[in-house]
Design a protein around this nucleic acid. Structure first.
Length: 503
RNA sequence: GGUCCCAUCGUUUAGCGGCCUAGGACACCGCCCUCUCACGGCGGCAGCACGGGUUCAAAUCCCGUUGGGAUCACCA
């Protein structure tokens, strides 16, 4: 029987074309996004093309909602593509559900060249044959119809059966060099002739995925390691397409390690951490999430964990991807995100914050001048205190309220010293001594320091704790004196007086 | 069961035969800074799965063992 004669792609630079081709089922998974990211990064690194295609050949499971979510995800993350869905290109259309006629042509060619053949046996019959021959049923199909005669096929048809189409797999060892794992060989006979077209004429993923990659000129297939064992099948199919004149080369393959959850399980779709939008809702910024995801199986250098997308693109090579699976560590992800939040310019940070404040109802959909002023002053106070943006509403809401809307948390109350009333009285008196226009951070701090630390001889912790609780209702808040300045003299004193009446 | 993949601190990684008494980051624990919380600074804890070989020399190469995982669909 024939061997593998098709050459592998030799593309290395701008001639590289990678692709991201998800099935629109369910919500985008972080593992899926990591795959998209590495493909994107490789394209940007080599100066090649990044293609985006949708594999929606399974009408049962695919949904338009999921399709929209994938677009939403890529858009949010800034993973832009050069060819494909919504962008177009030479191989349109880019949704497999619209490419049926293209597959039919390929199927005809493969039939004509004898690479695929009709198979009438049902799954049950295949099991029966294995049992009868004393073979394990896991062995699957025995290739028994490879050379069936026209009479045999006619007989099946006479029974009203329609054939599936199977690829005639060459009986040779199949070897390829995995970009992340090195040379891998699958011995001849590792898998049987597999179905590529259903009896109803619908082509399967096993056909459609390599066909599209071939027709679209994909040179590098970077995908999850769950597809590793289907690679020799695809190489066999590529070889058939090569011999049938449909393609010129086999792409290079690189199988990316799994993203695991706790323990040794793949991060399950049910796990909230697996859901990209869960992280967005929590207030991850794209830079942070992408940076963390890149760290799952890859590193920029020995001593730098925080990097930009530009740095990633400049340095990324699949060859440096680690083959072993990585666990998704929320704490590390959080830390990376926090670092990126700190890296944002003040303006940028503010604009990222706004949606979270709005959806929490802290500010209105359109900001009033007052809200804008408070936000401008308050945002810098919390930028280095946030791990995720969704923490902001809780931290800032007190600044947007009035004295009568402040409620005191019990854990804040628990930390109050014995002499809280005395502290408040002294503080109020000190603050009243400051003019409305002089009510800034520095004078406020000076006045309170004098009245509470120097005169009353209090420890700063016990002096300022009651004030913090009084104005914010919280045990933890943004810096105290800055917060007072934002609130202004009248509001600050009103809150302290209100709090004093309750203790 | 067949085939394939994987194996360095708790996690993620550096390491691609001598620069390793194994480096960084996160986490954790101290200390400093400090109005809370953070940030920042300093220090600490902690790892080459096991066994053979090759070599003057092995975390690094080879073999085996063990342990994980994937896949064997008319899903993708």
């Amino acid at each position: 029987m024939s061997s593998i004669t098709a050459p592998f792609s030799t593309a290395t630079g701008p001639d590289v074309k990678v692709r991201f081709c998800p099935s629109p089922t369910g919500t985008p998974h972080v593992g899926l996004i990591r795959t998209a990211l590495f493909n994107w990064a490789y394209a940007r690194h080599t100066g090649g093309q990044f293609l985006f295609r949708i594999e929606d050949t399974d009408a049962e499971r695919d949904s338009e909602e999921s399709f929209d979510q994938i677009l939403d995800a890529l858009g949010w993350l800034g993973l832009n593509w050069d060819e494909g869905v919504n962008v177009g290109g030479p191989a349109e259309p880019y949704r497999q559900s619209e490419r049926g006629h293209i597959y039919q042509e390929v199927i005809e060619k493969l039939k004509a060249s004898g690479h695929i053949y009709e198979s009438f046996l049902t799954g049950e019959e295949i099991d029966e044959r294995n049992k009868a021959a004393g073979r394990a049923v896991q062995l699957g199909y025995d290739n028994s119809e490879r050379d069936s005669t026209e009479e045999q096929r006619a007989a099946y048809r006479a029974e009203g059966r329609s054939p599936a189409l199977r690829l005639r797999v060459p009986e040779v060892d199949i070897t390829f060099t995995d970009l992340v794992r090195g040379e891998i060989t699958f011995p001849a006979g590792s898998f049987p002739d597999f179905v590529v077209v259903r009896p109803n004429g619908q082509p399967l993923y096993t056909l459609v995925n390599p066909v599209d990659d071939a027709l679209m000129g994909v040179t590098h297939v970077l995908r999850g390691e769950d597809l590793l064992s289907s690679t020799p099948r695809q190489i066999a199919l590529y070889n058939a397409m090569y011999e049938a004149g449909i393609t010129q080369f086999i792409p290079q393959f690189g199988h990316l390690p799994y993203v695991m959850g706790e323990g040794n399980k793949k991060l399950s779709k049910r796990d909230p951490q697996a859901n990209l939008f869960h992280h967005r809702d929590r207030g991850f910024i794209p830079e942070g999430l992408l940076n963390y995801l890149a760290l799952l199986g890859w590193g920029l250098s020995a001593d730098q964990d925080i990097f930009t997308m530009d740095e990633l693109a400049a340095a990324f090579d699949v060859k440096n991807v680690n083959p072993n699976p990585a666990r998704f560590d929320q704490k590390k992800a959080d830390a990376i995100n926090a670092a990126h939040i700190r890296l944002l310019s003040a303006e940028d940070f503010k604009s990222r914050l706004l949606p979270y404040l709005q959806s929490a109802g802290v500010v209105g959909v359109t900001l009033t001048a007052n809200e804008q002023a408070i936000l401008d002053a308050a945002a810098p106070l919390i930028q280095e205190r946030l791990v995720v943006l969704s923490e902001a509403p809780d931290l800032l809401s007190f600044l947007f309220k009035t004295a009568d809307q402040i409620s005191i948390d019990t854990d804040a109350l628990d930390g109050m010293p014995e002499n809280v009333a005395e502290v408040l009285t002294a503080a109020i008196a000190a603050l009243q001594g400051i003019g409305e226009n002089e009510f800034k951070t520095e004078p406020v701090q000076a006045a309170l320091n004098h009245a509470l630390i120097e005169v009353l001889g209090l420890k700063p912790r016990f002096a300022f704790g009651p004030l913090r609780t009084g104005i914010s209702g919280r045990r933890i808040s943004p810096p105290l004196f800055e917060s007072m300045e934002i609130l202004g003299r009248t509001e600050t004193i009103a809150r302290l007086e209100a709090f004093a009446r309750t203790v």
